[in-house]
Each structure stands twice: as C-alpha cells, then as structure tokens.
Nucleic acid binder design. Structure first.
Length: 626
RNA sequence: GCCAGUUUAGCUCAGCGGUAGAGCAGCGGUUUUGUAAACCGCGGGUCCUCGGUUCGAAUCCGAGAACUGGCUCCA
C-alpha cells in the first residue's frame, strides 16, 4: 500500500479555485521577475513568453550565452533583489500602434529601449492578439512586458521560489520556429510549501518505475541487441503481466467478450484501407519488402511483384478482418473481440520514457461491434469495467476526457458525417452523465473517425498518466466494408468501440510500480511467500520444506531460504526484495505446528497454525485483496 | 527528430592529464543464530564506441550510440 500522504495533485485547468488563482498570479509574476533578473545580467536577451505552469513558471528566451544551472544562483540573487525592492506591478493599456512601436524599439520584455534590437518575439505575440482585444503591458521597476496579467500587487508578494532546470522549446511550440532556451522555476506561497514540493519530488524519484523496475528485476531494456524502447520482461515482471492478463481475461469473459489471436504483421493493403498509411507511416516501423510469392518464376520480361508487410501499430484492422471473415447478422451483435495484442510503434527516440512510452507494447485491447441501438448500453458497460478496475487497484483519482469534434472542420480533420458525429457524441455524453462518471469535455480533440475518451489517472505521488484511449469509430468499419444484415433485411455498417481499460502492460505496470512504490499486493507480488528457517538443522528444514511444497501445489509463488545465515539477515534480504509475506520458522513453530507470519512493511504478525496461515494467503490471492 | 546534460565493477557513486577506487551485491570460509543487515578472505573493469591532441587520456577535443530533462509527437 502507498506509504505516504502527500498533497493531492492540482488538476491544472480542471479546477480553479481562489487559491490556485492566487498561486497562478504568484507564478506568473515570478516569471516576470526572472526575466527582469536575466536582463540585468544579459541586457540583450530576447524574451518570448513566460506563463505560469503546474508547479511554477518558465520563460522562453533567446540569448547567445547558454544558461546552465551554474547560472541559477546569480539569477536567483538578482530576483531576490527585485523582490526586496518591492516594485508595484502596474498595468498599462496601449493601442496596437503603440505596442508595435514599442516592440520595434526593443522596449518590450526589456529594461529600456534597445535600438537596433526590436523585441521580435513580442512583435509576433502582438500579431496573435485578435483585433479589438485590449493590449496591455505590465511594468515592474524598469521591466516592461507585453502581458495580459493578472499579477500580484507588488514583487514583494511573490512567495518562495527556486529555479529548477533549463530546456529548449520552439517559439510558439512550432518545430519550424527557432529554438529558444526555456528556464523553469517553481514557486509557492510559502517556503514550507516549496520544501514540501521538493520532498514530493524526492519521493517520486524514490518510486520511479525505472529505478524500482531495475532494483526489483522486473524488466530490462537492451538497446544494443534488442532496441530502444523494447522492454524485456524478466521473470518477476512477466509474473505481473500474466496476473494482469488473467484478471482481464476473467473480467472480459464475464462481460461476454470472446478472445481472438492475430499475427503481428499485415500487408500494406490493410493499412491503406484503414487509413493509417500514409498518414501515420512515420509512427510505424518501415515495411518489410518481399518479392511476390506467386511471381518468383514469372514469364520472361515481367517484374516480380513486390509485397510490403508492416508490423501492426494497432489491432483494430486485424479485428475488422475477423468481423469480415463471415456474414454477420444483427443477431450476432454485439460482437466483442478481445486480444492481448502486441503492437509496434516507431516512437521518436526522444519520446521514449521507461515503460511509459515504448516501441513494443502489449495492449489490453478489444473491439465491440454493435448497432446504434446497442451503443449506449455497450459504452456504459465499458465505463463500468474501468470503474471496476479502478477499485481493484485503489485508483481514486481519475478523469475521463471526452474529446469531441469541431463542426467547422468536418471533412478535413474529421470525417464528414455530421449526423453520426452528433448522434454518437450525444450518446456518449448521456452515458457519462447518467452514470455519474467524473468527466470533462474537450472540444476539437476527437480522433479522425469519432469521439474519444482519454482516461487520466494520477498516481499517489501526483504523476499524471493517460491510462487508455477509449474511442467510438463510425468511419473505419465503413472503409473495411463491414456490414451486418439487420432485422429489416438491409445491410448496415456497425459502430465500433475501441477500448483498452488497462492500456498496455508497459504503461500500466509502470504506473502500478509507482502507485504501490514497488510493494505489490499479494496477488500481483512476484514473490508471494518466502519460507525462512531459523537455522539449517535437518528437522527444521524438513518441516519448512513440507510447507513450501504445499504452497507450491496451490500455485503460490513461494521460495525457500534455509541457509545458515542469521535470521535477521535473512529477513533483511527478504524485506529488501519486497517479498510480500514471510513465514519464519523456528523450533517453537515446529513444536506448535505453526509459522510466524511477517508481512513486508507490516512487521511480525505473530505465530499462526500452518493451515490457517496458508488459507489466509489463498484467500487474499483469490479475491485480489489490496 | 530538435536543444541541453549524463555515461567508470551487477547496483550506487568517487577519481577529472601520470599504475582504475569505495560501499553494497557476488563467490569461498568461519559463525548455528527468534523478526531489517555476524566476521574474515577472494574475484570482478574495452572507464559507452570510434577517431584525434599528448611522452602519456577514464580525464582534453571531434563524431556516433544510449540514457536523462524538456520541446515536438502520441492513430
């Protein structure tokens, strides 16, 4: 179980109370003060934009000097001086002409005019302000910046802050624009909150799945022989994969899913039909090119036909072909095809991140083909399945982001089916409302072929995860010509729900490692029970061995440590390896037909009769107790 | 892919131009022990790779790879 009690994460733009509004003013003001300080050190710096973010602020700037963390103390010292001077933040409203003039003279994002060095990024920012909107500056001391505000009243109102890192960012977030240096800082109202934030970071570091994954021997990545972003599951990690699969298979069986298995590759035609090629070719591994199978000895003068195979980046097309493999009637629907499919995505190297962003992934995938009449019930059942999983894993904080289309972009960004968009979005919204699910609606973020729901969850340390994408698809089934014969004897195209409540093994286990800080519940623990003897005497060992044997016949993952080392050392080893339960056995236990039970993180729970101790283990495993 | 940083024993790290180090882990021995670490000894390295500078490179320079922090991206 999580063993810390840290502040819940702020939900960014989801929740805005007075407190967070004030924090945002503090952070944004700190960004101005940082720019002010940097200008005192490097007067020719050109600033772009500097907003408040989740825990602090940043400012993007162009400067020939490369700012490094070595520069932070000097910048922070200047910032302290500016804060001590307690300059008021003055708001000044200007005309567009005046703003352009000031930008051209280099006065914006600066301490004075800088002839010959116009505030070029500010000029670009002015262009983005719609006609008719007021244009405002904020002035603190000599520093004047183009800024919509709001700010705190005076620089002295900024609480505790610290610069944290420097990174690069594209101007306006567009990779065709110049790269700027982005200096990050964190800011809070009080020093205590700042300290708490750094404590949380330490805790996050301690729980980092990459660190724990290695320590616990769950997975390795072997870039030299296998490839970046392609985890090898070690025995202890594979156990967790298999337990999750078992859970998913049981859950899906009860919910009326049927399982299928499909190859890892398919011909080019598959992805031309699905529409993934050529749009997503960059995100797929390059094709394997084979000579046509039937044309190896073709007539003289003919070119052997080439065939291109792709590693699948998603399972849906294969499932669509299974749907198409036989005629379907409305009586066959809903058809729920489930598979733990392995997919391969050529993510850019800089995007890879431990188990969270990988190139080979095992998806808890399924596609539900249904009629429009069945849709609401099916969709609701999927949501209920999410909630069921959340309960098992103790996930208390979640949000479903409901992404809808923008009617203005029909036919371009979104398939031109206005009726279907409206219909399915209304249905999804209704289901979400009726079931009281925590959701937010995000316009213009839907997939090309239908509305989608991204499930966001937060680990106990406040790290945010997009667990899964849950999508409605009314376009691709049509592209594959999928049809069923309806009650009225006409052929109709089914709706398809893509769903993957557990996301991928890779990402979900990454989440679970951090969620549990490596202390998995018994049913997931790689090593469930270790039997330890007080010494290696023959009587004790044979008594303990019988217990090990019995646990093993009950399919408990059990190991034995009968070495002559001191019991304190053996316990220390087992605790360090996060063995869930230890059965400690000494002469007194043997005498009483008992074992002394010790649970990782909970200490010695005392002696219990062997049968009872085993029964309790089996009960916790079978019921997947937390 | 882009910018920056990092890469030394299985792990965590020190060394930063002059014979490659520590702790933990591992192996061997001694110790027979009641709930988080007994004692002694031993082995272990292409200092990421390739090239350059130098009498001499883990150390300085260049190129590449991987990882990390961001950016862009995430069907």
């Amino acid at each position: 179980m999580p063993d810390t009690n840290l502040n819940p994460p702020e939900h960014g733009n989801l929740v805005k109370n007075q407190d967070s509004a004030e924090l945002e003013r503090i952070r944004h003001s700190a960004a101005h003060v940082m720019a002010h300080a940097i200008l005192r050190l490097w007067p020719h710096a050109q600033f772009a934009s500097g907003p408040a973010v989740d825990t602090g602020f940043y400012y993007d700037l162009e400067l020939d000097h490369r700012i490094t963390p070595d520069d932070f103390p000097a910048i922070e010292a200047e910032m302290q001086k500016i804060i001590a001077a307690n300059y008021p933040f003055e708001k000044i409203t200007v005309t567009r002409e005046q703003a352009i003039k000031d930008a051209q003279s280099g006065r914006l994002g600066a301490l004075s005019e800088r002839p010959g060095h116009p505030s070029k990024f500010k000029l670009g920012n002015i262009e983005d302000i719609p006609e008719g909107e007021p244009i405002t500056y904020y002035k603190s001391g000599d520093f004047i910046d183009l800024c919509a505000g709001p700010h705190v009243a005076r620089t002295g109102d900024i609480g505790a802050f610290k610069l944290t890192s420097v990174a690069s960012a594209y101007y306006k977030g567009d990779e065709r624009n110049p790269q700027l240096q982005r200096v990050y800082g964190v800011a809070f109202k009080t020093k205590a909150e700042l300290d708490q934030y750094f404590a949380m970071l330490e805790e996050a570091k301690r729980r980092d799945h990459r660190k724990l994954g290695q320590e616990m021997g769950l997975y390795v990545i072997d870039p030299e022989f296998v490839g970046q972003g392609m985890p090898l599951w070690l025995p202890k990690g594979a156990v967790i994969c298999e337990e999750l699969e078992k859970l998913a298979k049981e859950t899906e069986f009860l919910a009326g899913y049927v399982r299928v298995k499909t190859p890892h590759i398919a011909k080019e035609k598959m992805y031309l039909t699905s529409g993934h090629l050529p749009y997503y070719a960059d995100s797929m591994f390059p094709p394997m090119v084979l000579r046509g199978e039937n044309t190896g000895q073709g007539p003289a003068g003919t070119q052997p036909e080439q065939e291109r195979y792709y590693l699948k980046a998603m399972n849906c097309p294969h499932h669509h072909r299974i749907f198409a493999a036989q005629p379907r009637s409305y009586r066959d629907l809903p058809l729920r095809l489930a598979e733990y499919g392995t997919c391969y995505r050529y993510e850019q190297s800089g995007e890879l991140f431990g188990l969270m962003r990988v190139r080979s992934l095992n998806m808890n995938d399924a596609h539900i083909y249904c009629t429009p009449e069945q849709f609401a019930e099916e969709f609701n059942a999927v949501n209920q399945m999410y909630l069921k999983y959340f309960k098992i894993f103790g996930i208390e904080k979640y949000v479903m982001r409901f992404s809808t289309h923008d009617p203005a972009k029909l036919g371009q960004k979104y398939v031109g089916e206005p009726e279907l968009w409206k219909q399915t979005e209304d249905m999804v919204r209704q289901v979400l409302k009726d079931s009281g699910i925590n959701y937010v609606e995000v316009p213009d973020e839907a997939a090309f072929y239908g509305p989608k729901i991204d499930v966001q969850i937060w680990s106990v340390i406040g790290r945010e995860f997009t667990l899964a994408t849950n999508q409605v698809d009314f376009a691709v089934p049509k592209r594959f010509g999928l049809e069923y014969r309806d009650r009225d004897n006409t052929m109709k195209t089914p709706l398809c729900i893509h769903r993957a409540p557990l996301g991928t093994h890779e990402r979900f286990i990454g989440f679970l490692i951090e969620h549990y800080a490596g202390n998995f519940p018994l049913w997931l623990a790689p090593e469930q029970v270790r039997v330890l003897t007080l010494n290696d005497s023959a009587e004790l060992v044979s008594y303990a061995q019988a217990i090990v044997n019995e646990l093993r016949t009950k399919f408990v993952r059990v190991s034995a440590d009968f070495s002559p080392a001191p019991i304190r050392a053996k316990i220390a080893d087992a605790e360090a390896e996060r063995v869930h339960t230890m059965f400690v056995i000494g002469p007194r236990d043997k005498q009483a037909g008992a074992v002394s039970v010790r649970v990782h993180g909970k200490g010695n729970l005392g002696a219990k009769p062997v049968a009872q101790a085993i029964e309790e283990i089996l009960h916790a495993i079978t019921n997947r107790l937390p």
